[in-house]
Nucleic acid binder design. Structure first.
Lengths: 354, 354
DNA sequence: GTTAGCACTCGATGTCGGTGAGTGCTAACC
DNA sequence: GGTTAGCACTCACCGACATCGAGTGCTAAC
């Protein structure tokens, strides 16, 4: 921050504010008039020249105004975060829009992305919490046909997983139930991996050949499941909002960006916040995605009852309304945590199919 | 079709073919040279003038070539459909790209949309078959905590539905199992509505108060479920492809279109093919969606083992490569039907969570 | 250190003639 | 009578050129 004094910083802030609003290069006259700093345009000019030398401003061409650089936004945002979030009138708006219709994870996520995008006018992404290794609480076999059964696994985080397994013919419901009971007893508290490891031992003790065959097929299914964890659900809202902003007037750029947003697994990896921080702000090149070199990504974390962390985020142009976005994200994060959080008297599942 | 002779039609076809390729107004000279009809440009000119009068051609301005109208595409497509689909070399391409990684409905749908969009370069939508009223085959209560249990319903189409229900305290697994068995016996073959209606009668006969309470809460859950059927899954691929086409150089138009595509329930209603026809082609205004007035929508139907109909479709500019799209859709429809069709030795579920 | 004044730069906008693709019409041709 | 060559006409597109104005950097005075 060498060479940066209080006044320069205030001028820089004014420039950024104006640019965020108008998307037009900002001139010295604009600053001295619209944001009354008690300085003439000439003085501002000198300061701007310094700021450019310091790398905070870019000049598209000599007779245009100046445009903040990524470095400038970085400074701006760091200051914003340091100073704590400004209380914003959007708190009420969020609360009134985001009324839980349902506590089903899928619905909540969907609605959150919707509200977030329409509140910010940017693109919103909401990512379901990634599970820690779930532990088995109950395992049950439900007959489906005479050749197949459904294996339902209830885990400690309330998530249910189910798979169809083949069963030896002529195995009736009661037998399936008794197998289920003994498996539940043996495997309760295990992770899927542990369960796989214990299966061989459990298989040994069976008295009928049919049961042994069943156990073998269960083991196969369990190890499949352990190897391929369910991908996290994710919803995107307001992708078309990006086309509103002049920075995406160029079709090629717009297409590139949208195509990244469309590629769900890629997007999930991008949006997933790393670490335990409350907020992440990645500006332009910091996103690490070439197609997003003039986007910023702001993410926040929410937490479910089981301590699992989900992510919600906003993708917008680098000249994003960071203040507003941060406060909306913070409020929505709270709301999500509350909704999915420790309300013991609500059903302890966070996911289901309708 | 009045005033339309064989030659006029051939010329119209040539114009449409050229316009589909180039997106540029087509002149009389182009037709007489590139598509050798053995006619001079002057003759073509006279015919084009007639075609314009008949409403098949539009002229952006006097010194530009002609552009096909929606009416022209309609004629063109009707002829295409009447003549049967031209065998296309894309059959092999489809088969090689679209290799089933999985038989899970969700995966299949996802992959189909992906392949369809990258094969056509348009936007692809694949809609899961809408269920007929599913009939209960098995109902099971799986303990989750001491206050809650999971109600798993297996239906005849193999779809599983599950919900958490509250249970009276101190009801052990065995009791839940016996309740499950008797419910399964009583309700097997019922639709959800029928099940709801029968519940009161079944509740009466219970001997303990706890069981009565349980039955009451089950009834509540069942009627919720019956009232709100699960929405059909749908996946969209290649939405950003639309930005490739010059007709969407106008940002406002592009945004409007993308925003329709983003609104999932609206899109689902649009894409859902009505009737039992194999193909639907809606051209421009025929879509009934203002934002899609210069799009065409082509859909095809596929059929699962249970005779349920799903839809797959393509959204592109009105100057779409109808021939190619129709043949790709037809092949993909077959593939989907095969994949989800009558293979009795595969697991009889068509959906699951990973 | 601040500011008024001024020359200078350069993108944006507007005007204008030239170019060429395309049309419509007429008259000649078969 | 249908087909075609020929020709005048239209009009979007393009490059050249002038103009305008927002904005800068520099200098000199306060």
């Amino acid at each position: 921050m060498a060479g940066m004094d209080e006044r320069k910083f205030r001028i820089l802030q004014a420039i950024i504010d104006d640019y965020i609003l108008t998307a037009m290069p900002v001139g010295s006259r604009t600053i001295s008039k619209k944001y009354d700093m008690g300085l003439s345009s000439a003085t501002i000019r000198n300061e701007m020249s310094d700021l450019e030398e310091l790398g905070y401003l870019d000049q598209p061409h000599v007779s245009a105004g100046r445009v903040p650089s990524a470095k400038a936004y970085r400074l701006y945002v760091d200051e914003l975060l340091r100073g704590g979030l400004i209380a914003d009138d959007s708190a009420e708006a969020v609360r009134s829009y985001f009324t839980a219709r349902s506590r089903q994870m899928e619905d909540v996520i969907e609605q959150a992305a919707q509200v977030l995008s329409s509140l910010t006018n940017y693109t919103a992404v909401v990512l379901e919490p990634g599970g820690a290794q779930p532990r088995i609480r109950n395992l049950q076999l439900v007959p489906v046909s005479d050749q197949t059964a459904l294996m339902v696994i209830v885990t400690d985080s309330g998530v249910v997983r189910d798979t169809v397994v083949r069963i030896p013919a002529r195995m009736d419901a009661d037998t399936l139930y008794s197998v289920s009971r003994s498996l539940t007893e043996a495997l309760a508290g295990c992770t899927l991996q542990e369960a796989c490891e214990r299966m061989p031992a459990l298989t040994m003790g069976r008295d009928s050949e049919a049961e042994e065959k069943l156990m073998a097929s269960l083991e196969g299914v369990l190890s499949d499941r352990a190897a391929a964890p369910r991908p996290r659900r994710m919803t995107v809202g307001g992708a078309s909002n990006m086309l509103t902003y002049p920075e995406y007037n160029d079709m090629e750029k717009a297409r590139g960006l949208l195509s990244v947003i469309e590629t769900r697994d890629r997007l999930a990896r991008i949006i997933q916040s790393q670490g335990d921080v409350a907020f992440t702000v990645r500006i332009g090149p910091e996103t690490g995605v070439p197609e997003m070199s003039d986007c910023s990504i702001v993410t926040a974390t929410y937490t479910t009852r089981q301590g699992r962390h989900g992510t919600l985020g906003v993708i917008g142009p680098t000249r994003m309304q960071y203040g507003r976005v941060l406060s909306i994200l913070s409020i929505m994060g709270q709301q999500l945590s509350e909704l999915l959080g420790p309300e013991e008297d609500s059903p302890p599942r966070d996911e289901s199919r309708k």
